[in-house]
């Protein structure tokens, strides 16, 4: 039996090996996030503040195209309110939607027109297309942030580390105009200027808006944006595991009952 377990462990290690192979960067700052582990959940207050940071700082350049306003008040989302089980009814999401301007149309004369956002809209992109975005950003394309924390190895720590990782360029490193030095970015030269400064936003809950705090809040929000069903998934997972455990015990009992008089 021990041999069996050992063999299985080797195979399991093989599976995990491919994930480790790509390996997290050693120099990423490892934050103790609330959403880590099988019991992890999002810190809603932090994610709400993170939304404010996104809206006031990031949204000028970065889209969030896979997130819709009704998502904000879904179960497990930053603005979820159990009084509104149907997130489409939640006035908070409606109010947030209204703060954004959405392009719609064409109208009866064939032109596009602007209107305030409604709950069914997705977050509007700051630029009409990638080329426009590049033209406005010195040739660099500000990536969409909807999946950022899943699109990088150890994504949440990466994003946080990047946001707080800006430094003065060391001796001998030449930065062309518009570039900043950030050792967390691959190649260390990044076209995004440091986005956060102490007090960049004013939090309504009284939290001090330090760069570190805003980076953590934003990471909470964007981790939710990339994996909005995480809380549901983990809760379901525990129910399924419990069921399978009970079933395994019952079936083992059945197995022993069937085989009880058989030597094998």
């Amino acid at each position: 039996m021990l041999k069996r377990i050992a063999s299985f462990a080797v195979l399991a290690a093989f599976v995990a090996g491919s994930a480790i192979a790509a390996g997290p960067k050693a120099d990423l700052k490892d934050v103790d996030w609330s959403f880590e582990g099988p019991f992890g959940t999002y810190d809603k207050a932090s994610a709400q503040r993170g939304f404010q940071v996104y809206q006031e700082v990031c949204a000028a350049c970065h889209s969030l195209k896979y997130v819709a306003f009704y998502n904000l008040t879904d179960k497990g989302a930053p603005f979820y309110n159990p009084d509104f089980p149907n997130s489409n009814e939640n006035p908070v999401a409606k109010a947030i939607a209204k703060m954004f301007t959405v392009s719609d149309g064409p109208d009866e004369t064939g032109d596009m027109f602007d209107r305030p956002g409604v709950i069914s809209d997705k977050f509007p992109a700051p630029f009409a297309n990638d080329m426009a975005a590049m033209a406005s950003n010195g040739g660099a394309l500000p990536p969409d942030l909807s999946l950022m924390t899943r699109a990088r190895v150890d994504g949440s720590n990466y994003l946080y580390s990047l946001l707080v990782g800006y430094k003065d360029a060391p001796e001998g490193v030449e930065l062309s105009s518009g570039m900043s030095y950030n050792p967390m970015f691959s190649g260390s030269k990044i076209a995004m200027a440091p986005p956060l400064f102490d007090g960049s936003v004013e939090y309504s809950d009284g939290t001090k808006a330090s760069v570190d705090q805003m980076a953590k809040d934003l990471t909470q929000f964007l981790t939710w944006a990339a994996d909005p069903k995480m809380e549901q998934r983990k809760a379901t997972g525990w129910a399924v595991m419990l069921y399978l455990l009970i079933l395994a015990i019952l079936l083992y009992g059945s197995y022993r009952a069937v085989w009880r008089n058989v030597k094998h």
Binding site: P38, R233, K234, M241, L247, A248, L251, Y255, W259
Partner: peptide, 24 residues
């Protein structure tokens, strides 16, 4: 029933490993 029940037990154990990866 000898191997159907043994397989059923093994399937459920395997599904637990599957579920761990799937959900967590």
């Amino acid at each position: 029933p000898y191997y159907t029940v043994k397989d059923a037990f093994a399937i459920v154990v395997f599904l637990m490993i599957f579920s761990w990866f799937l959900f967590f």
